[in-house]
Write a protein that binds this DNA or RNA. Structure first.
Lengths: 113, 113
DNA sequence: TGCTAATATGCTTGTACACGCATACAATAA
DNA sequence: TTATTGTATGCGTGTACAAGCATATTAGCA
């Protein structure tokens, strides 16, 4: 009672395979929530291009430093970024190529209207 | 003062090309917001598989009918779904393949941990 | 030790929104 | 017309959260 070679555990075990399990849907939604905020999307994209310290991001995005730190904390807890200290300065970099792939896909779609 | 063949209008005209324009970031975020909710993610996935009427979705997702209608309204306003009437019943179907592509990409990533 | 620069965190507030209930609207049948 | 079924909408509420201010923390330097 399985659709031909399709992924197995996405849909409810005894349910319609066209319906995503609630927990799978929640995992999916959690990923998308990261990029569903303009500030985080900009931070993720910037960190995918090169290393940035917090104050650089703060200036480039026109946000208070705590606002940036708050978002970076979110990304850190999700293990999407890595950090490197240089004195009092902390440099951030994107750690997860998957997130960039998803972001890039949507950026491409937007370009083609 | 443009990066080699790279996309042109994504970053601020006079700014760092590694920084997304605020309006571009907002467009990106709007796309991701659609899938950033478990219920909408499940609806989008279900509608990508086949046609569904509202009451079917309501039963399959374990939600009240108005809750489903509210989300379908959101998807309708964004022109992501199309409708077909049959008597009092309205059938919905996914209209935008891009959304499914993005959703599928994340589903695949989740499967590979 | 004290001072300064860079970052992180606690707290608060405004805002967005998912979804429930009640109800309005639409379409078919008797 | 009236009743019934399916869907849409208005309203209210609880919840999540972005970001600001104030402040704590960390690291380097005099």
């Amino acid at each position: 009672m399985q659709t031909h070679g399709a992924p197995s555990s996405l849909a409810a075990a005894a349910g319609d395979p066209a319906v995503l399990n609630l927990d799978v849907a929640e995992s999916v939604a959690q990923v998308f929530k990261v990029l569903a905020d303009p500030t985080r999307a900009r931070i993720v994209y910037a960190l995918s291009q090169r290393e940035w310290c917090v104050c650089e991001l703060s200036r480039a995005l026109g946000l208070e430093q705590p606002a940036v730190s708050h978002q970076l904390r979110t990304l850190r807890l999700l293990r999407l970024v890595t950090t490197r200290r240089a004195g009092t300065t902390v440099f951030y970099r994107l750690a997860d190529p998957h997130v960039l792939a998803v972001l890039q896909l949507v950026l491409d779609h937007i370009q083609h209207n």
